[in-house]
Amino acid sequence: MSDTAALRETPAREPDLLAQLADLTCNLRNALDRFRLDSRLTALAEKEIPDARHRLNHVLKLTEAAAHRTLDLVEQSGPPAERTAREAAALAGAWARFRAGTISVAEYCDLINRIDHFLTAARTDSETVRANLAEVLLAQDYQDLTGQIIRGVMNLVSEVEVVLVDLARLTGTDPNAVQAQPTDSSRGHGPAVPGVDHGAAIVNGQADIDALLSDLGM
């Protein structure tokens, strides 16, 4: 082929070259995107998701410890509160007789002693209950800490979602075509979450369950 002929063919090959260049650029961009995604996925899988698991485990421990602390304090407050109520009720009869002027001298002396004892005991017991209530209040501080940790993990979940959607786009997977794994209902699903689990399949409180069981003859 002569030089003149080659020159004449150049305009015809240009679009072809440009198309190849465009393909190459596109592939390069996809490769870079994939590399960026791969690096991010690796970091997520190796570091941040295990971290998140540890963080959520810490939330479990904090909430469990706070619940046990609260239960301890409630259990410790029961006896002094019951003692005060019981003693007050026990004094009421003699006190009524004193107010009516029908009390004997011996019972009056006994009543004075019992009231002395009751006032001291009631003050100590009430102080115990009050201090326990203050501790119950403090035991709720886990909410602040666990709330911050859970929000951090929620941000991570959002990021994982974005990365996975990008990955699905790059690999040409249609996210809508992927079916959720069926769960085994005999194992249980856990609590229904408002805004996520709803509809006719979910009961709405105890009254709904009672009505359903009643329909079943229970």
Partner: peptide, 12 residues
């Protein structure tokens, strides 16, 4: 906390 109707029927 299981709140699905089918589960309550299953338990019954």
């Amino acid at each position: 906390a299981e709140a699905k109707r089918e589960q309550i029927v299953e338990a019954a």
